Computed example of a mutant assay.
Amino acid sequence: MSQVPIYDTPILGMATRPRLSKAIEYGNVVNFWVEYPSGLIDLTRSQHLTADGVEPSLVSLTQLDIPVTGDRTIRVDKSKAAVVIIDMQNFFLHPELRVHKTGLACVDPLLKVIGPLRKQGVKILWVNWGLTDQELKTIPPAVVRGFMKGGFGGFGTEMPGNFGRLLMRDARNSELYGPLQEEYLKGEKEGTDVWIHKNRMSGIWGHQTALDLYLKENGITTLFFGGVNADQCVSGTFIDAYFQGYDCVMVEDITATTSPAGGLENVLHNAANSQGFVTNTSNIINASG
């Protein structure tokens, strides 16, 4: 049997590759990473690879070293990092509207990781569906159809009880679920949390979306992702951010989906082996001190 060429699938398998034998710099003069034989991947863009290949020391005041899958550790600049929490809203999580056990299971670890990250100066971005009446006129038919059931309902229609119009701004169904809404309001008051509306599955799907504008205006380059659903809005935003050159890290235990088995696993596989990195809240909390 012939051996599979070493470059057969060059962008896959990053989470299973052995550590490097010598340091390598990726990218260009302005936008670059440096990976070292120790397993450290420096995403801070603060120091180019030196001639002797010596690994720089962690500057704990401004940087975090966070373990990721694949026996690697990423070094991030706190001031250039943000957590992107997607669609943890009543519409997707509230028991009166749907059954989403795995999504609800993400609430507790999410609440536990937010505090340490705030203390480190990492921004918390709550990226949610939040439509206006004007946007209802411009949403493509494929997206409209996907949110209807049997030809009924859909964006902007009244929901049962007091949940308001479906995924419209300021409606109860568009609020964050349970304690997450309170947590956001706390962070908003402290100046650490930002609510960002989106009008597609991806929060960064087109030119100058609200999320993309915020990231560029604030010089943010490294994004930690979580939310629901993993293989829909979360992965859509994750992949678009990857295409646009952001450093993308999926946080496994705050990411969930209602899809059949394989949906979440596929997202995590591609995040770790092709598009970026995968970590968990324990790694982040331990790194945050």
Rank of each mutant, 00 (worst) to 15 (best):
residue 218 N to Q: 11
residue 101 K to M: 13
residue 31 N to P: 00
residue 188 E to C: 09
residue 48 H to K: 09
residue 142 A to Q: 10
residue 78 K to W: 04
residue 163 F to P: 02
residue 171 A to T: 08
residue 289 G to N: 15
residue 215 L to W: 10
residue 123 K to G: 00
residue 156 G to E: 05
residue 88 M to Y: 08
residue 271 A to D: 02
residue 210 A to R: 15
residue 222 T to M: 10
residue 87 D to R: 09
residue 73 T to E: 08
residue 176 L to Y: 07
residue 149 K to Y: 13
residue 220 I to M: 08
residue 165 R to N: 04
residue 115 G to H: 15
residue 207 H to Y: 13
residue 126 W to I: 06
residue 283 N to V: 02
residue 165 R to M: 05
residue 83 V to T: 11
residue 218 N to M: 03
residue 195 W to L: 15
residue 52 D to A: 15
residue 8 D to V: 14
residue 287 A to P: 01
residue 49 L to W: 07
residue 231 D to Y: 01
residue 67 P to G: 08
residue 54 V to K: 12
residue 166 L to P: 00
residue 183 E to T: 11
residue 168 M to K: 03
residue 178 G to L: 14
residue 140 P to Q: 05
residue 119 K to E: 14
residue 130 G to K: 02
residue 43 L to S: 01
residue 40 L to G: 03
residue 105 A to P: 04
residue 114 I to T: 13
residue 142 A to S: 12
residue 75 R to V: 01
residue 277 F to A: 12
residue 28 N to E: 08
residue 159 M to K: 11
residue 53 G to A: 09
residue 199 N to L: 06
residue 173 N to A: 10
residue 2 S to E: 12
residue 48 H to G: 04
residue 60 S to F: 11
residue 120 Q to F: 01
residue 216 K to M: 08
residue 51 A to M: 14
residue 107 V to N: 02
residue 35 E to V: 02
residue 225 F to G: 05
residue 52 D to W: 05
residue 122 V to L: 13
residue 209 T to D: 08
residue 207 H to G: 03
residue 160 P to N: 03
residue 24 I to C: 10
residue 70 G to A: 03
residue 115 G to V: 13
residue 4 V to M: 09
residue 169 R to K: 14
residue 280 N to T: 01
residue 156 G to Y: 07
residue 154 G to N: 05
residue 152 F to K: 15
residue 38 S to C: 08
residue 12 L to I: 06
residue 86 I to W: 05
residue 91 F to T: 07
residue 90 N to G: 05
residue 31 N to H: 14
residue 212 D to A: 12
residue 102 T to R: 12
residue 49 L to G: 02
residue 85 I to Q: 15
residue 104 L to V: 08
residue 19 R to E: 04
residue 229 N to A: 14
residue 88 M to Q: 15
residue 113 V to H: 04
residue 165 R to Y: 03
residue 158 E to F: 05
residue 57 S to L: 12
residue 281 T to H: 08
residue 57 S to R: 15
residue 188 E to P: 01
residue 55 E to Q: 14
residue 228 V to T: 14
residue 73 T to M: 10
residue 232 Q to P: 00
residue 82 A to I: 06
residue 196 I to C: 03
residue 147 F to M: 11
residue 261 A to D: 10
residue 263 G to V: 02
residue 103 G to M: 07
residue 177 Y to Q: 06
residue 85 I to T: 13
residue 253 D to G: 02
residue 12 L to R: 11
residue 87 D to H: 10
residue 225 F to T: 02
residue 128 N to W: 01
residue 281 T to W: 05
residue 124 I to E: 13
residue 278 V to T: 07
residue 166 L to R: 11
residue 94 H to I: 07
residue 240 D to T: 01
residue 16 T to M: 11
residue 75 R to C: 04
residue 187 G to S: 05
residue 289 G to L: 08
residue 236 G to W: 07
residue 30 V to R: 12
residue 212 D to E: 13
residue 147 F to R: 09
residue 149 K to R: 14
residue 219 G to L: 03
residue 152 F to R: 15
